[in-house]
Design a protein around this nucleic acid. Sequence first.
DNA 1: TTTGATGCAAATGTTTTGCATGCAA
DNA 2: TTGCATGCAAAACATTTGCATCAAA
Lengths: 127, 127
Amino acid sequence: MAGVKFSRQRQAIMDYLCSTKEHPTAETVYTNVRLHYPNVSLGTVYRNLNLLAEEGEILRLTCGDGSDRFDGNPKPHYHFLCNGCQRVLDLAMEPLNHIDILAAAGFDGIIEGHTVLFHGKCPDCKK
Amino acid sequence: MAGVKFSRQRQAIMDYLCSTKEHPTAETVYTNVRLHYPNVSLGTVYRNLNLLAEEGEILRLTCGDGSDRFDGNPKPHYHFLCNGCQRVLDLAMEPLNHIDILAAAGFDGIIEGHTVLFHGKCPDCKK
DNA sequence: TTTGATGCAAATGTTTTGCATGCAA
DNA sequence: TTGCATGCAAAACATTTGCATCAAA
């Protein structure tokens, strides 16, 4: 990656993202990285989250509720947003490749991919 | 609808949304409604877009690129975001009910629905 | 007349950015 | 030493909200 050099702040951001199964917002990443690097700035967190997402090392999730969230697991997978507690959970399911075919039928452009967000009640909130 | 009374501004917003196949942002709605009601305020546009979306008379689309967009057609349908020109187009395809079943398998919560956004090159940008 | 809707402006929340300084290579 | 990364603060956006006034019913 030309022109990108190591930084301990970026490393700490990656470490935190990989250590959690929550899907934290930039603000939450900031709060947690601060535990180890009290001087880190929110601007640096945003700059690095953008960089890591562009490099494909993390995923950015736009759930439509305020802030974007980030996922340290860059492997494409699907997410679930609980409309009770607003938590985002990972779903274990195979890639839905066939829906791109369905979308392409009768469409005169090129379907390159899709994003899906499921919603409902999480195991805790369904009770 | 208890407590909601008619307003010509809201009517103008509905009229505009139903007159276009673009999927305008609040700002674009504002600009266009202003052609007929030069005094309308952006706050009023946002308040009414929120009201109409809650009532299910329009759809709100969160595409992850800056502003939300709105669709005067409230019937559930799928959308396509062109990564060339950023336009949002309607797709003619059947509801993907089965993917909720797939998501529910092995998930201990309740899947109530999904949002899908396809992306790629629109008919114009694929050339 | 009553109550919701509006226009205006200020406030909010999220994310980006300019700039002087710090640190990796 | 060179140039990307940082911290800080200000700016940029998108959206919401308080309040006095307006208009629908």
